[in-house]
Amino acid sequence: MKVGVIVFPGSNCDRDMFHVLTDVFNLKAQYFWHEKGLPKDLDAIVLPGGFSYGDRLRAGVIAAHSPVIKDVKKMAEKGTPVLGVCNGFQVLVESGLLPGVLLKNNSLNFMCQWTNLIVENNTTPFTNKLKLHQKIPIPIANGEGRYYVDESTLKQLKKKNQIVFRYEETVNGSLDKIAGVCNEDGNVVGMMPHPERATEPEINPIDHKPSSLIFESLIQKIGVKN
């Protein structure tokens, strides 16, 4: 069982993600540089946070045209679990794998703080071990995190249960307090907060267990530990 961690020029949470996957959850992980394709035997793909291409033009938009994204799309269509965190979420949105867009925060500030998420869909590969409406204390760190979709898409998201996480309180002006969404099939999930910064008691002063369940959900979905 192997998880691919995609690295773009400007990714900066790739090593944190790799550490959590391997050292905390004993998964086998491998980095994949954005210029290359992906092997077919990957069991899951993670797009980590950072500032791919320095957020030039718009966060995530240039990375969304990378060669590796073609393979991510192919594997996503086949049902491989894909998680995008922060900039990874922005890349998934800009590549069309997830609906919506992430705009500048209402405050115009880069926001780096602890928030509480509420689980709204616990049927995805990354939330199946969480309880519906469970609270997850987790940090955000972004400048462009204000989720937006048009009215008709929002209706579709609600109808098809594609809203995965909401903020407990209004944080950055995100529409309907949306913090994470999935595709129609549920295997591609994007979220602005950083679960890889919240799964260890040493760095999570509140409660590291709920964020850990995001990774344990993946383990439950894709099989045994290595």
């Binding site: 033009l57 938009v61 800009e94 867009v101 937006y148 048009d150």
Partner: peptide, 9 residues
């Protein structure tokens, strides 16, 4: 073609 702008917003 290259989504220089995001047509949703």
């Amino acid at each position: 073609d290259l989504r220089i702008y995001n047509p949703m917003v």
